[in-house]
Amino acid sequence: MFVLSTAGERRLQRLLYAAGFCGALFFLLAPVIFMLLTALSQRPDFLGNNYVMTTRHFREILTTPSLHFVRYCINSLAISIASAGITTIIASGGAYVATRFPFKGRTAVLLMILSLSMFPQICIAGYLYRIIAAAGMVNTWLGLILPYIAWIMPLTFWILISYFSQIPQELDRAAFIDGCSPLRTLVTIVFPLAAPGLFSTLLLAFIFTFNEFMFALILTNDHAARTVPVGIALFQGLHGELPWGVIMAASVITTLPVILMALLFQRHIMQGLTRGAIKG
């Protein structure tokens, strides 16, 4: 970025960069590394003591039925994949209409959707519980999937709008002329061209629902539908002292796929994030 004019400045800058880079690396990674170390350690108080490595915590969390961790994982994956997938599909239809067909009140609809994403979760949580309870869906997958779809729809919608508006409208028009209905145009022309955008959106939607906490806390009671974040948050030891090794092992198992996703699809995620934010 900076092309420096003097040698002194250049040296200073290189130094600053090295210091900044190391600082950033420590800041970003230290907690994660500590998590991993604790998960693999015999005892949590290894700092200043001998470090004895073990995989016992991992075995314990995965094989102890009373901990329900595997079940939490299944719940989380099923709920997040379903919510993210359904939301992306539904939102893409809406975003397509919003970018292509000027209808009356379009601005109002877009603004409403945008403002919905600004609502603090606590303003929704109370009555959301009552609605879901009235429908008899507390502590079920569907009881979380439906609120999640509603909750990530605005963001998904906005990200997709920014992707769709980049596809030249003349392509749609050509498809109409060639005999396509709007739905067919969406599926055969817009979807393939927006595939990277759809993928980014799907990833973001997945991460958001996978990480969500408050709704999952309120709308689930036990392992029937409880998600991993809530499960880990409510994890209590049997004998007062918290089983840190086990908790961290669970955290490592949970974060590993998320981190892998973040590293693999870094570009997609960053693009989707900035679009959602800057557009809004």
Partner: peptide, 20 residues
Amino acid sequence: LSPRERNIAMVFQSYALYPH
């Protein structure tokens, strides 16, 4: 009639070829 009911062909300024 919608475009697809008209059996009309059109060539656009940008050609509008489907890139995929």
